[in-house]
C-alpha cells in the first residue's frame, strides 16, 4: 500500500520545457488519471515516475521516501505500455512469468501465480500462444497480467487502451476498473481521452503544456473547470466558449448582451455547455446544421460570423430546418461559466 508524491517536478529537453512545477499526490490505493492533449508532458511524467526518464528538478516520493535515481526495478512499479510491449518471441506464459523469472522466484510460485493471473484475466487457454497469435484485447490482457503478477507498489498505465477499437475499449475500461477495485493498488493512468479519464479516475489531473490545470474528482472538473482549457477539454461535445468584454456588469460579444453581475470589467470569456442550453427565450441565432444521434440532437447555431454555439437537446426532438433564423436559445445564468483573459475561472456565479 503506497502513497505517491510528486513534488515540483520539472523537466527540460534542451530549451523545451516539458514539465513545469508539477506537484501532485496519489493517495494510497487511489486511481488517478492524468489527462491532456498529446504533447502536454503526461507520458514524460509517467516515465519519470517509472524511473525510465529522469526529472530535471523536483522529486518523486513513494511513501515519503525519495526514489529519484533508482532503477525501475528498485522502485517496484509495474507499467502497461500503449503498444503493450509484449516480448514477441515469448509465449504468453513466458511473458507473464518474465518479471518473476527475473526476480528468481521459485518455480512452483511462478507456476501458481501465472495460473492465478491467467484465470483472473481469462488467459488460461492462451498460455502457450505467441503475442502475434493474439487479438488486441488479448494482448492487452497479457500486458495487464504481466504488470500485476508481482504485486507492484504502483501501477502505471501509458494510454493502454488507445490501440483498441471503441467497443473493446469500453469493455477493457470496465476490466481495469474491476481489477483496481480487487487489488487496490495505487494507480497512475495516463490518457488523452477525457471520457476514459471521467469514467476511470477517482480523481483526474488535467495537464496542459507541462502544467497542471486542475486536479479533482471527475464531476468537479466537469462542473467547475478552473480554467477555460479544462472547460473545453472535459466533456463532449466541448463547452461553447464565447470571447467578449465586460463593461459595467454587462457582457458583450458581438450582438450578444448578457447581464454579468459582480464581474470585473475587461476581456472575458463566457462558457456554456451544449447540454445546458435549451431552445426558448433569449438571443436569436441562425441554425447552421443539425446532427441527430438518436440519444441526443445537436444543433449548430451561429450568433454572428465570429461566434458559434452548439446546443445539445436530449432525445430525438423536432427542430427548425437548417438555415432557419431567429432560433431562440435560453442562457440560464446558473449554467454560465466565466473566465478572465488568462483563462482563469471567475467566481461570479458562485
Amino acid at each position: 500500500m503506497t502513497r505517491l508524491d510528486l513534488e515540483q517536478i520539472g523537466c527540460t529537453y534542451g530549451t523545451k520545457r516539458v514539465l513545469d512545477d508539477v506537484t501532485l499526490t496519489v493517495a494510497d490505493g487511489e486511481f488517478l488519471v492524468i489527462v491532456g492533449p498529446s504533447g502536454c508532458g503526461k507520458s514524460t511524467l509517467l516515465r519519470i515516475v517509472a524511473g525510465l526518464a529522469s526529472a530535471t528538478s523536483g522529486s518523486v516520493r513513494m511513501d515519503g521516501v525519495a526514489v529519484d535515481g533508482l532503477e525501475p526495478r528498485e522502485r517496484d512499479v509495474a507499467m502497461v505500455f500503449q503498444n503493450y510491449a509484449l516480448y514477441p518471441h515469448m509465449s504468453v506464459r513466458k511473458n507473464l512469468s518474465f518479471p518473476l523469472r527475473v526476480a528468481r522466484r521459485p518455480r512452483s510460485e511462478i507456476e501458481t501465480r501465472v495460473r492465478a493471473v491467467a484465470v483472473k484475466l481469462g488467459l488460461s487457454e492462451l498460455l502457450d500462444r505467441r503475442p502475434a497469435q493474439l487479438s488486441g484485447g488479448q494482448m492487452q490482457r497479457v500486458a495487464l497480467g504481466r504488470a500485476m503478477i508481482r504485486d507492484p507498489r504502483v501501477f502505471l498505465f501509458d494510454e493502454p487502451l488507445s490501440n483498441l477499437d471503441a467497443q473493446l475499449r469500453t469493455e477493457m475500461r470496465g476490466e481495469i476498473r474491476r481489477l483496481h477495485r480487487e487489488l487496490g493498488i495505487t494507480t497512475l493512468y495516463v490518457t488523452h481521452d477525457q471520457e476514459e479519464a471521467l469514467t476511470l479516475g477517482d480523481r483526474i489531473c488535467v495537464l496542459h503544456e507541462g502544467r497542471i490545470q486542475q486536479i479533482g474528482a471527475p464531476l468537479e472538473l466537469y462542473r467547475k473547470p478552473r480554467t477555460s482549457f479544462v472547460a473545453r477539454f472535459i466533456g463532449t461535445p466541448a463547452m461553447n466558449l464565447v470571447g467578449g468584454e465586460v463593461q459595467g456588469e454587462v457582457f458583450r460579444a458581438g450582438s450578444l448582451e448578457l447581464s454579468a453581475p459582480s464581474l470585473p470589467n475587461g476581456p472575458t470569456t463566457l462558457g456554456i455547455r451544449p447540454d445546458e442550453l435549451v431552445l426558448g427565450q433569449g438571443p436569436r441565432l441562425t441554425l447552421v446544421a443539425v446532427e441527430r444521434l438518436g440519444r441526443e440532437t445537436r444543433l449548430e447555431c451561429e450568433l454572428d460570423a465570429r461566434t458559434r454555439l452548439v446546443v445539445c437537446l436530449p432525445g430525438d426532438v423536432p427542430t427548425p430546418a437548417p438555415g432557419a433564423r431567429n432560433v431562440g436559445v435560453e442562457l440560464r445564468s446558473e449554467a454560465l461559466h466565466w473566465f478572465d483573459a488568462a483563462g482563469r475561472r471567475l467566481a461570479a456565479e458562485l
Binding site: 524511473g51 507499467m79 510491449a85 518479471p99 527475473v102 504481466r146
Partner: peptide, 9 residues
C-alpha cells in the same frame, strides 16, 4: 523499457 520495469538488468 518494459524489461527494465520488469526488473531485468
Amino acid at each position: 523499457e518494459a524489461a527494465r520495469i520488469d526488473g531485468a538488468g
